[in-house]
Amino acid sequence: MSEPTVAFKFLRPGAIGPFSGFRWPQPEGGEAGSWVEAAGAGGPCAGGVHACERRHLPLWIWEELWEVELDGPLEPGLAKLRARRGRLLHRIERWSPLTAKSFAGACAGRAAEHAAAARPDEARVAAGMAADGATRANTAEASADAYVAAHGAAVSAYIAAMTALRVAGREAFDAERAWQADWLTAELGIGV
């Protein structure tokens, strides 16, 4: 018998799965949302309920962030966890368009730092990548739309990671993603 696991899940507004369109039952009156059991294999939402650990949060950003409980044997994916059933525990309110914009800005700064450390023959491309990061962060900042903010954060984080990869290779890429996850964990108050 396996222990329930607490993990995280980004969803679209209304607790809707971004790929499945599935509307997750929300917590009510202090009670966790009802358990959702995965249907059989086949289709884009095949074979399981998905969530992620803190370290993979930067990869899955959407408008809402939820703490979830997974039940049953866990199957790790590349950057996610899959289980037979799961339920929403509570919404992490501190993840908001404002936080997303702040994160986007922070990542744009990181991209610029990485680019500044580029070798001369790669400086131009690295600067271009970082500039794209800045553009996306600015777009997010200027928008009142929750999607634009969240998406800006996702893209900005990707750009920072790829700039690090370009300039300094795989280790730097991993370190950048770890930095991003730490930033989110601290800012959202979801440390272990």
């Binding site: 369109g21 599935f22 059991e37």
Partner: peptide, 15 residues
């Protein structure tokens, strides 16, 4: 500025 991605047609995980 790209429009918000609409929800995809449901592929429901039924209880």
């Amino acid at each position: 500025e790209a429009p918000a991605w609409r929800y995809r047609a449901a592929c429901l995980e039924s209880p």
